[in-house]
Simulated assay, not measured.
Amino acid sequence: MKHADERVREQYVEVAPGVRLWTERRGPADAPALLLVMGAQASGIGWPEPLVDALAEHHHVIRYDHRDTGKSSHSFDEQPYRVTDLAQDVIAVLDGLGVERAHLVGLSLGGMLTQLVLADHPERVLSATLLGTCALSETSYVRPDGTPVPVAELPGIAPEVLELWAHPVEDHGPAAELDRRVEHWRVLGGNQLPFGEAYFRELERRVIEHAGTYAVSTAHGRADDSGMLRTAELARNAVPTLVVSAPAEPVFPPPHPQHLAQVVAGARLVEIPGMGHALPPAVLGPLAEAILGHTAGGRREG
């Protein structure tokens, strides 16, 4: 049986007038806090349970639903917000839960939000881990041979992903929506690991059950994404930062991770073999090991 302080705890945090976010905490309450920041249109339930449990062996793990996802307020149409407001939500979650500082782990858009917090509120961050994302910097990537590559010339999103994203999501019922999500994960996973259809189907069943609806919000795609560059601030970064390189990544393919590790001062790079823009079972062990190895260098109470 788990100790009382290790039970899963759910709580809502108000981040703006009338806007509240669902949060969940697990792991010892007196362990260093670790906040998981998900990608666009994705709720906190998208973080796989085995990964959350592995991290909770050493941390007070927090995950949450962004605005317009899961059990959080779906408010964009009445109260439009900017992408940078979603980064302020990270701070609001920490404030609402009484956490002074935390290790941050951000995936995709969550990796961008984590960079914004690194740049704007470094005093709140014990360490940062960035997954499946791109640098919020105008600094060119420098190849190993010393050749500079402008950001605009770095590889773009894979055609098969763009093809999926080009079609608006239509409501053909819950079964068809579940099929669509599974196919989405198949493409996002890349081509280096076998695809576990049953795993992702069950993951999305839990996501839908948690939200209470299979409807898909487009709020994050419509939010104003201006004002996100933090070139100078990231170049001055002093927070221990880990960049995870995923060789099968189809959204921000290599050398985006290498570029990110160059523009965030002091960042180090680790590769997870076979990883794409998804979190299948095969990558969870190596990913947890990489994150915990990184946070071990700065474990102290937040």
Score class of each variant (00 low, 15 high):
245 S>H: 09
236 R>D: 15
16 A>P: 05
232 A>L: 09
56 A>N: 08
247 P>C: 03
33 A>Q: 04
146 G>L: 12
246 A>M: 03
286 P>L: 11
163 E>H: 06
256 H>I: 14
141 Y>R: 08
148 P>E: 14
62 I>N: 05
232 A>Q: 15
176 A>H: 14
235 A>P: 03
99 V>T: 14
207 V>S: 10
190 G>N: 03
102 A>F: 02
215 A>S: 13
94 L>A: 12
68 D>W: 04
1 M>F: 15
264 V>H: 03
47 W>I: 13
31 A>D: 09
68 D>C: 09
246 A>Y: 01
191 N>T: 10
54 A>K: 05
166 A>W: 00
53 D>T: 08
8 V>M: 14
125 V>D: 04
94 L>R: 02
134 C>F: 15
283 V>G: 06
61 V>T: 07
28 P>R: 15
251 V>L: 12
74 H>I: 12
59 H>W: 01
257 P>M: 06
270 V>Y: 03
157 I>W: 07
220 H>I: 07
244 V>W: 07
8 V>D: 14
184 H>Q: 14
111 G>E: 11
110 G>Y: 02
252 F>C: 13
210 H>F: 07
176 A>M: 09
278 A>W: 00
190 G>E: 12
217 S>T: 12
198 A>R: 02
282 A>Y: 02
146 G>C: 13
120 D>G: 06
30 D>Y: 03
152 A>Q: 11
199 Y>R: 00
266 G>F: 02
242 L>Y: 15
64 Y>I: 15
22 W>C: 05
177 E>M: 14
58 H>L: 14
